[in-house]
């Protein structure tokens, strides 16, 4: 588990090429869409690689590429700590 003081950043702020770990899905995201994200495998602690940020946030999670609008990526909280295998 990550230390409590670890800084959490919105996924939309992370530069392409960076690997991060998912911390939480914000409450601002529509509940149905939150379930959808969970079903895509975005659970807390999961490693995510940011591929690009424009025109949309594109991430690689578990060999699956997902494109997310910034309105959603803005409310996905991630931690920049190195991924522990």
């Amino acid at each position: 588990m990550s230390p409590a003081h670890e800084v959490r950043l919105p996924l939309a702020f992370i530069p392409p090429g960076t690997e991060v770990r998912l911390a939480a899905l914000g409450d601002e995201i529509d509940p149905l869409q939150r379930e959808q994200l969970t079903a895509y495998g975005l659970a807390s602690g999961r490693p995510i690689k940011v591929l690009q940020q424009r025109p949309m946030t594109v991430i690689l999670a578990d060999e699956v590429e997902l494109a997310l609008e910034h309105a959603v990526a803005r409310h996905i909280w991630v931690e920049k700590s190195p991924v522990v295998a």
Binding site: Q33, V58, A67, E69
Partner: peptide, 10 residues
């Protein structure tokens, strides 16, 4: 409007 979240198959 619902923001877009989509999978990009290879």
């Amino acid at each position: 409007r619902i923001p877009l979240v989509t999978e990009l198959p290879p």
